[in-house]
């Protein structure tokens, strides 16, 4: 098995991107999921639909419109320029922003399901015992909904690792900046270097399989009453 320097740099970049995106998503998705699972507002339907949109849109279509929106003439691009940040396409930051949008439903939905299944009762009980809302969230809700958060983190991470269409559209294939594993594999295939493509793809499959196996293994143990985990 032979990995070139550019292969290694693509692997490192992908792991960095996925880690950062997962962390941001956990912070962003939790309040959305909490609101969706608790609110009686009639706007929950609209928000749920917007959150789920990236599931339906083809990634390259999403990427194309992000390229336009983030470009110098797009609304997002004009906003970032007015802040003195320049434009986002062809930058690592741009990939992070795009990936957060792209992987949002994969993180919101498991957390939302876990919170809905939990119901309001634990929070209410905590309140009668004198816990404030923040205290109750971190010491009651969060520990009880932990499996949902773990699933969300794993799905958000793996989905970002596997992202291709969006990155291809807004990345510009820059080494150490935007050339992630999936783009590198695509390049190898297009350049007819099938051997290198096989190596990288094999690594990716093995990695994803191990991560998912660990997730579902933990879940199974938990269901069988193996006690608390993590």
């Amino acid at each position: 098995m032979h990995l070139s320097d550019s292969d290694l740099s693509a692997i490192w970049l992908t792991l960095k991107l996925a880690t950062l995106v997962t962390l941001i998503l956990l912070v962003v998705a939790t309040p959305i999921a909490l609101w969706l699972s608790r609110s009686q507002s009639r706007f929950t339907g609209v928000v749920s639909a917007v959150v789920a949109l990236p599931l339906v849109l083809p990634p390259s279509v999403l990427g194309f419109y992000l390229l336009i929106a983030m470009g110098p003439n797009g609304p997002l691009g004009q906003f970032t320029q007015s802040l003195g940040l320049g434009t986002l396409p062809f930058t690592f930051t741009g990939l992070v922003v795009a990936s957060v949008i792209y992987s949002l439903p994969f993180v919101v939905q498991p957390i939302q399901n876990a919170l809905t299944a939990l119901g309001k009762r634990p929070g209410e009980v905590a309140a009668t015992l004198g816990a404030g809302p923040i205290d109750s969230f971190f010491h009651v809700t969060l520990p009880l909904a932990k499996p949902g958060f773990l699933t969300a983190a794993v799905l958000g991470f793996t989905h970002t690792v596997g992202e291709f269409g969006v990155v291809l559209m807004i990345g510009g294939n820059i080494p150490d900046q935007t050339r992630v594993i999936s783009v590198q594999i695509y390049d190898h295939v297009e350049a007819l270097n099938y051997g290198q493509a096989h190596t990288l793809s094999g690594l990716m499959v093995a990695f994803a399989f191990i991560v998912l196996l660990a997730l579902y293994g933990l879940r199974r143990r938990n269901k069988q009453g193996g006690g608390s985990w993590l």
Partner: peptide, 20 residues
């Protein structure tokens, strides 16, 4: 400052959208 399209069509897109 070089950005690369996977083909000539995508390269055109980068310029047409004003990003390059």
């Amino acid at each position: 400052r070089r950005v690369m399209g996977e083909n000539i069509t995508q390269t055109w897109q980068f310029i047409a959208s004003g990003n390059a």
